Amino acid sequence: MPKMVLTAQYLSINANLVHGNTRKAELSVEVEDKDVTTYTSLGWKEVTGGIKSGELGCEFLQDFAAAALDSIMWPLLGTVVPFEARADQGAVSASNPKYTGSILIKSWNPLTGSVGDEATVSVTFPTSGAVTRATS
């Protein structure tokens, strides 16, 4: 079974390449479990899938320069924008699928940290609508 070490993730938010500032990106999707247990379940719980949802969690190294990370993200606060994430910056393929969808920029933490810390921003954006996976 092949192994992989993440060394060059790709991340685009609102058509802006932000992987140069990205230290960590985690896309998670899930589906609600709905209890459909009846008396014919013979004492066993039965579930079926409900509504799907997702989150894009990111840790960025902050940059306040003109046209850099903070100036890209700040105006997006409160808006729903497209994203694309891949395990590698190489071409989209069967071994490097892309995940796309939309996220709500529901928070932005421009100033965090203590004396001597790197200037980082850790945020989690909820997805809005479908998240798709493509290999071409």
Rank of each mutant, 00 (worst) to 15 (best):
P82T: 02
K34Q: 11
Y39Q: 13
V81F: 04
S107L: 11
L77K: 04
L11N: 03
K106P: 08
E46W: 02
G101K: 00
N14F: 06
L77T: 09
E84A: 02
Q9N: 07
K24P: 07
P97G: 01
R23W: 05
G101C: 08
S71R: 05
S107Q: 08
D63Y: 13
W44Y: 15
L17G: 03
S95Y: 11
Q89F: 12
L11D: 04
L56K: 01
S28R: 13
G57I: 00
S102A: 10
Y39A: 08
L77S: 07
D88A: 02
Q62L: 02
D63H: 11
T40F: 04
N21D: 08
N16W: 04
H19M: 14
D33P: 03
W74D: 03
E32K: 07
I105C: 05
E55T: 04
G78C: 06
F83P: 05
P97F: 13
W108C: 00
G54C: 06
L69T: 01
E32N: 09
S107G: 11
N16M: 03
H19R: 13
W108L: 10
R86K: 13
A91H: 05
T100V: 09
G50T: 00
L76Q: 05
G78I: 05
G57N: 08
F64A: 11
G43R: 09
A66I: 02
W44P: 05
T79M: 12
S102T: 13
